[in-house]
Amino acid sequence: MTEVSSGVGQSDATRVTEDVLDDAAARAVEAAVAAPECGAVVTFRGVVRDEDGGRDVTSLDYEAHPDATAVLRRVCADVAAETGLRVAAAHRFGHLVVGDVALVASASAGHRAEAFAACSLLVERIKAEVPIWKKQQFTDGESEWVGL
C-alpha cells in the first residue's frame, strides 16, 4: 500500500493512493458517507476512456504531489461545510489502463437532488484543486500531459 501523505480527523477512505480502486474500495468510500438519515447516496466513478479529442488512448500515467491526500481531505471538508452533507473521495495515481477507475467520489443526503449536486460539486473541486496530473499515451506512440 502506497499513499500520499495523510491527514487526520477524516475517514481513511478519503485518500490519494496507488492502490487499485476496485468495488471494495468504492464501497469503502460510500460507507464513509452513509448515515441513517441519508436516503440518497450518489457515487461517481471516473474511468479511463479509450479516446481523447478523437485520438485513441491506451493508458494514463497519473502523478500526485506529496500533499495530494491532505488537499483532497481539505476539499472534502470544504464541500461538506458548504453543503452540510457528507462527502468522501479516493483518487488513484500510477499507471492506469482503459477501464481502470481513477476517481471514486460519493455524497449522501436525505434526498437525491442534494446528493447529486454535492457529488458533482465535489468532482469539480477535486479536478480544480487537488495537485494531480496525468499523461496520456496514444496508440500511435505519442504522449501528452493533459491540460499543459
Partner: peptide, 10 residues
C-alpha cells in the same frame, strides 16, 4: 518552491 502545472485529476 514547487513548480505545478495545471492540475488534471479526475
Amino acid at each position: 518552491v514547487d513548480v505545478l502545472p495545471p492540475f488534471a485529476g479526475g
